[in-house]
Amino acid sequence: MPEGTVENLVKPENKATLADILKYHVTPGNLDVNILTKLKKLGQANNQDLQVEVVDGKPMIGGANIIGSVPAGNGIVHVIDKVLLPPAKE
């Protein structure tokens, strides 16, 4: 991310933007890596979609690689290798 992005996002006036970014990382479902390869896109909690591509048999989520997956009580946490920034809304 560009220099200063994080400092900027944690400012009180940018709380909504930060929430939007965080929600862009959340989708309903308990989707493992295998099923992610069958998806074309994911509907995220901020009301925008993330595109899913399959490269070398592995799913790339919004251009990010999954570098680890942790099963959790009510879902699964996929660790990815970059921050996903929501595209500007219409």
Binding site: H25, V79, V83
Partner: peptide, 11 residues
């Protein structure tokens, strides 16, 4: 690493 959280059933 930022995390992509896929929440089962409910959040």
């Amino acid at each position: 690493s930022f995390v992509l959280v896929l929440i089962a059933a409910f959040l």
